[in-house]
Amino acid sequence: MLVIRRDICGYCGCCVSVCPQGALELIDAYLSVEGECSSCGICARACPLGALEVADEA
């Protein structure tokens, strides 16, 4: 599951551009997961600040 750290996110949209599923959507200052996320972690790599993390489903 993708965890968004809103205290870190700077709502820049960088992650949105790399998501292969088109699952992320930026609504002004609010990033949300709106589609099917495959937990691939690509967005988490691209984030300049480290606001995204794929957490274990356990």
């Binding site: 960088c14 949105v16 551009s17 790399v18 292969p20 088109g22 959507e25």
Partner: peptide
């Protein structure tokens, strides 16, 4: 850079991870 609109219309606009410059 988000380029979601064209994507919703069926155009694959996703940027490969190695081809995004992530910036601060």
């Amino acid at each position: 850079v988000e380029s979601k609109f064209a994507r919703w219309c069926g155009v694959d606009t996703a940027v490969p991870l190695g081809d995004i410059e992530t910036c601060v």
